[in-house]
Design a binder for these strands. Structure first.
Lengths: 216, 216
DNA sequence: CCGCATCCTCATGGATACTG
DNA sequence: CAGTATCCATGAGGATGCGG
């Protein structure tokens, strides 16, 4: 019984047979941001052993979640998600949304990457819409995550062009608090360094604050 | 470093720290259908060792996903999801939806439980709505899963009262095919035993078939 | 360098027997 | 019924080696 399977005719069990192994979904998370090199994944998953990464990549490739291609630029191997693998975005987003209570508490010494913030912002904001569009930047660890909202939804980009003119530089926890509606724009701005136009932030993040700001 | 954690300040990683362990989400799946006894879980997760079940239950209770209460009826222990634990429904549903390609193929000798079908039907149908309401039954392994649709969404119940008058008795795979839109009502009825009013099934499952039946 | 393969140690999972 | 206790198998973690 190599390849340990739950042996259940159940969607959840079969999904976990494929992506339930340790590290698997974290690798998918990295690839959700975009194709990556082996070394990117090694750094991005922060803690995985080299043999496990290559083993997981081979397994994920075998089942059709990941595919590898040749990176003509660097003449190396590029890993990316297959179309079906990309559809894990919803499941990852659901888990990220569920985890918000775990993000306000917990250990402080955990490692952090801007990529992970981009995934979280996408999960928390993607369905938000606004009649008038806007783009703002969240600056964390000298990288800028840009958040664009319009009437189709909200879209996240890393170090995107053009640079947004309204930027909030803040701690990851503050950005998450803002995106999950636990912090108002005012509170978040007070907890970081802000430059630009506050109206842009209100358009993007004002969704939640309605109830909290009836005093204003 | 007991309690193996990913050590990442990332929602997905923290969620997996809590429910990413082997069997954990399958236990949650059982409890999503309703509170259960230890012996129910042992049977429902089909293959878990007793020590692992008790260990997982203790861990899940510790982090606030599961809670135990006293079952006054049987004078035993009842396990149920906390409110936060119940919110895993979306994540489980997303994984179930993602897994549909894995359900049409794969091993035939896998075990099967009606509970799992109820979870899958909920994941696949929950957001479907209909202006005119209807209730149908899917009979599998001598149990009936009733599916009720109205303008608020679709709701699943196991052996619910009253018994639906329109019932399709079929294999699990046929029911899943119907619910995922891969089979039309006509195809599913041909693959099982049907009694009642076909219109009810069209109301519940007719959502997908539009494109396929333009010939009719 | 990059993308692994190998080796070794130890934590975790799995099966079964047993108990309050 | 609801778990422990025990023992063995497997998988993860970490260091290092190695060919392209």
């Amino acid at each position: 019984m190599t390849k340990r399977s739950y042996g259940q005719y159940c969607g959840l069990a079969r999904a976990l047979d494929v992506v339930g192994g340790r590290w698997s979904l974290l690798i998918v998370r990295e690839l959700l941001v975009g194709p990556a090199r082996y070394s990117d994944l090694l750094a991005g998953t922060s803690g995985i052993a080299t043999n496990l990464l290559s083993e997981r990549l081979r397994d994920l490739e075998e089942v059709g979640v990941v595919e590898r291609s040749l990176d003509r630029a660097s003449n190396g191997v590029l890993f990316s998600l297959t179309p079906w693998g990309s559809e894990l975005r919803d499941a990852v987003a659901a888990l990220v949304r569920w985890s918000t209570p775990l993000m306000v508490t917990g250990p402080q010494e955990d490692s952090f990457r801007t990529n992970w913030l981009a995934v979280a912002l996408d999960a928390l904001l993607h369905d938000n819409k606004a009649a008038v569009s806007a783009t703002v930047g969240l600056e964390v660890q000298n990288r800028i995550v840009s958040v664009h909202i319009d009437d189709t939804g909200t879209h996240i980009a890393l170090d995107g062009e053009p640079q947004p003119t309204s930027v909030l530089r803040a701690e990851p926890a503050v950005v998450l608090g803002l995106a999950s509606g636990m912090l108002t724009v005012e509170q978040a701005v007070l907890a970081g360094e802000f430059r630009g136009d506050l109206d842009d932030f209100d358009i993007v993040f004002g969704q939640f604050a309605g109830a909290l700001r009836t005093i204003a």
